[in-house]
Structures are given as C-alpha cells and as structure tokens.
Computed example of a mutant assay.
Amino acid sequence: MDSRALPLIVAAPDSFKGSCSAEEAAEAMLRGARQVFGERAEYRSAPLADGGEGTLDALLAVWGTPERSVEVRDALGRPRSGRYALSVDGRTALIESAEANGLPWVADVALRPLDADTRGVGALVSAALRDGAEELLLCLGGSATSDGGTGLLSALGARFLDADGEPVAPGAAGLARITSVDASGIDPAARAARWRIALDVDNPLVGARGAAEVFGPQKGASPEDVRVIDAGLGQLARVLAAHRGIEPEAYLDRPGFGAAGGIALACVALLDAETLPGGELVSAAVGLPDILRDAALVLTGEGQLDSQSLGGKVVDLVLGTAPAGVPVAVIAGSVRLSAAECRAAGIAHARSLATGPDPLEELLRTAEIRIEDAAAQVCQALATPAPIPFPAVSAPDAS
C-alpha cells in the first residue's frame, strides 16, 4: 500500500439471500466503517457472488454497465423478460442461466421436471452474440431444468435425434431416446465465442451425488422422475462422448457437471466450453486481485459462515485473494465456525447478525441495519488500540 495514501477499506461480500443483495450488503458495511473512520480512510465497494444466483447483479454493480433485456422463455416455455450484462468494452457477456430457466419463474404452477428445458438460456446467449459478445460467462444455479443443456444447444441450432433420426421431445423426458446429435447447424458465432461456465457445486452428472438424485426433488421430481432423469443424463453423456470420440466417464464423473441439471455437459461437448468454480470466474471478471491489492482491511460476508464457506464460496475467495497480512473480517447472518476454525482459515474477526433469539423474519427485515452496525463494531475492534493503518490480527474473535 502507498504510505502516502489513506488506508483503503474494501467491502466484498456475497448477497445475504432473502434479505439483501451483495451490493446492498457492501454499502451497509461501508456505512458502518465510516462510523468509525470517517474521512481518515478511503472506501471501495466490491460486491461478489459464487457464480450462482446473484452473480449478474454483482457484476453489473462492479462493471457499471446497464443491464440488457430480451424476451425469452421460462423453463416451461412461457414468455418472460430475461436480463444479461455486457462488459465495458462490449466483448464479454455475463449470462445467469436462472434468468430464463430459474425455479422461481415456474413456482406459480405445478412443477414439471421432465418437461422443463433450457431453450430460454439459449435465447439469452443469442441476444448477447447479436450484441457483439466474443466471450460468454455462463453462470449456473437455481434452475428448474434437468435437460443436460440440450435446450440451450437446440436454441443455437443443434439437433438431438432418436434412432429414427427424429428430434426427441424437449426437456429431460426425451434424453433417454437420444442416439445421435447433429451439431452442423450450430450458430457460427456461438462456435467462435469463448465459453466459460461458472459451476456453483462440484456434484457429478449422475449417481448418488448427481443432478437428478440431489437436485431433482427440489425441482418437483418424484422418485420415478429421478430415475428417468438420471438415466437420461447418462444416455446423453454417452452419446456426446461418442460424438467426441472419448470415454463416457469423462462426462459422467466430471465434478460440477451436476450443476443446474447438467447444462455444462452439452456446452463442453459441443462448444468446447471451459468450466471453473464460480468464485474464480467472478474474481477474474471484476478484477478482485487488483481491488484488494492496496487494501488495509477487507470486510466480507454471507448469510451463514460455516465449513462450506471455506470450500470455494465468496468468503474463501476473499481470504485466498487478500494480500498476506491484510486482515479479513467476516460478517454473517449466523456464524457456525469456532474461534479456532476462524483462526485456522485466516479470518481476523467473525461477527453474527443474530445477537439474540430474534425471529428469522426480523433478521431478514433488518439485515442492512444489522450489517452496518456489525461492520462498525468490527472496525472498532480491529482498530483499537492501534490507529489505522490496520495491523494484521493474529487472534480472531468469533463472537
């Protein structure tokens, strides 16, 4: 850090789902920090996401570009408006698949897990390509679909065929009947683009930890539906592996292919998409290393700080990116890690928004106020008795 500059405080949280966005949480944290340091510090907001829901809003806040909208279809084929974002230079598009195939958009009717498809995601991609995007960042999570990405690729011109050479039914219902794929009609712009897919989970495509078994029930799948979806995704993986001349296990066992009903499968097989943990994609897209490089204190957080937070989520990303010696404080709706676990993870201070037996509804309603107050308390604790610039804190307080 430049010794002539004021100390920089960076707020880089995830959203607090159900209560406030990552941008709202970051601003609340900075308001709390200003209560303690006022004009003696500089402040920067850097809202983040783990590559799932909320990633679009997080990147819009950092890029500062306007959101774009296009008419798409939800997972059941009904019209809706879907959003996407373009980077400042217009070359990179951020697409959150749940803008089209998200579970909330079909929650008003009986769920149809075998019929739901991802064609609407393809419409978002096509709109971004028409806008001149050369790179597509596709963020998965929160889906109502389990079609292995066949709807998305069908919207871009691919054909998934049965033994008679006829297109199969859309959604998971037709997957088990696929025997071949015709990729000749895929939009050349989609082929030419660089695809990167953010995975918010590490589940494989099929099996006990696969897309159907783990996530199917929340999409309305019965036990029989789960068996149908699992078998269909397995068949699709084998057909696509044969199409590429590789062993099926390369797709069947690949970590993360279970995300969002297997969307990454068809994208990797037919468009050479790269996959990576969502947090890494967001970090690269917003330039997190540069943002944190000169920080004197980093405030981050999420709804719940627990062992999963240290496995690729936003808190883990911030801890791994912050320069050595810079204290990282975590504010969370609830803290499930012990002081020893926080210390081992490198967390300087962890504070919960729940200060007593408050009803969940009250916590959600007052989240921003509580985040602001918690940030003020964290800053006071880390700055006392030493004046800023802030020293590294070796013994975290997990109160």
Rank of each mutant, 00 (worst) to 15 (best):
L310N: 01
P277G: 14
A33P: 06
W105Q: 12
G220W: 00
T321M: 10
R112C: 12
K17T: 00
L288Q: 03
P223C: 02
Q377K: 12
G262F: 10
G52F: 06
A374M: 01
E274T: 09
A61C: 00
K313E: 03
D306L: 06
P391Q: 09
S69M: 09
L299C: 02
A176N: 09
P389Y: 07
E166M: 14
D108L: 04
V328R: 13
P188E: 09
N101D: 15
A231R: 12
A324Y: 02
S154L: 11
S399P: 04
V315Q: 04
A350G: 04
A46C: 15
A208C: 07
A374S: 10
M1G: 14
R293D: 06
C267G: 00
P255N: 08
V181S: 05
G149N: 11
V314D: 02
Q218H: 10
D272S: 15
K17F: 02
A295M: 11
L86R: 12
M29F: 05
A208G: 03
P387D: 08
L161W: 05
S87Q: 11
P391K: 12
I186G: 09
L103V: 11
L60P: 01
Q35D: 13
R159I: 01
R194V: 13
Q308N: 11
Q380Y: 11
L199K: 05
L360Y: 10
L153I: 13
V315W: 09
E67Q: 13
G311L: 14
E372H: 06
L288E: 10
I371S: 03
A386H: 13
S352W: 00
S399W: 01
P387F: 05
L364S: 02
G148H: 09
R91C: 09
P387R: 12
L136M: 15
G38A: 15
E302A: 03
Q308D: 05
A208I: 03
G311A: 15
S97W: 02
I388L: 15
S283P: 01
G333T: 10
E39M: 14
E280M: 04
G258D: 02
D14E: 13
I186P: 05
V201H: 10
S184Q: 09
E166C: 08
G38Y: 00
A11H: 06
P387I: 09
A61T: 02
N203E: 03
G312H: 07
S154R: 15
V206N: 00
P13N: 07
G245Y: 10
T321K: 06
A49N: 05
P289A: 02
G303C: 07
E274Y: 02
A85F: 09
G287L: 13
D200C: 00
F16A: 04
D187C: 09
A344R: 15
R254W: 12
P248W: 04
D358V: 14
G301S: 11
P248T: 07
G333Q: 08
L114M: 05
A198E: 08
L271C: 10
L138S: 07
F215M: 06
P277S: 08
Q377A: 15
A398K: 04
T366K: 05
A367R: 03
R40A: 14
A123C: 03
A49H: 04
A169L: 13
V282C: 13
E362K: 05
S97E: 07
T118R: 08
A49K: 00
A259D: 14
G216I: 01
I263R: 02
V335C: 09
G185L: 06
A211P: 03
